[in-house]
Amino acid sequence: MYDFAYHKPATLADAVKLLAADPDAKAISGGHTLIPALKLRLNRPSALVDLSGIAEMKGIRREGDALVIGALARHVEVAENAEVKAAIPALAYLAAHIGDVQVRNRGTIGGSLANNDPAADYPAAVLGLGATLHTSKRKIAADDFFLGMFTTALEPDEILVAVSFPIPERAGYAKMKNPASRYVMAGAFVSKGPMGVRVAINGAGPCVFRQAAMEAALAANWSPEAVAAIKQDPEGLNSDIHGSAEYRAHLVTVMAKRAVAAAG
């Protein structure tokens, strides 16, 4: 990797200041995307602002009808947290199936969401549950957060602090993994609750998206059969040596069906 300066601020305000002062600085949380990129010399930040010492970004707690998860919560913490398991078991399941043990022990929910890898897991849960993203500046609805491949509504000096998940009546997640990377090739997170019926599709396209036809079908009839006949248009979906757009489109239906079945 190339040389860079390293900062470890203790407060959110200090972190924001560091990022605002240096447009080439990058925030780092678990580092599971950034560190490999640095090692491959694909990225050349002037400085890394390590967020791991910021107390206000930590913790998982129930706040009324919502579950609030600090951006620094590692996947393993979400997977094993009793509040998460009780309130949104599908979210605990999703976290428990990200990457491998090493990834889950280091990677954080905030890092995953801010990076918005099309093949990441968490964006599906955030969009599929209609969560609210709390940043150092504002609150952003999930529907407004994911803008495109590796792109979010976050500004360069804006830090994701926590995610507030409305607790659904039921929710489920299913994914088909890429046989090599084990990232998501196509996944579906479905929920029914205070935010209505939502179906979020990850892995298949350049950015997580809602599947309106499936949402309508499920609103009328919450069952795997309701989505089984709904075909996803392959236009604009990702295509690579592991899965063509057509295959991914097919998997969207299969995963949605499985996610509904898992949600019960």
Partner: peptide
């Protein structure tokens, strides 16, 4: 192991080569 027509190695890492 997959090469494209230009001879670029598409399965050049564990992300794309499935062990």
């Amino acid at each position: 192991c997959v090469y494209d027509e230009e001879g670029q190695l598409l399965s050049g890492s564990m992300l794309d080569y499935a062990m």
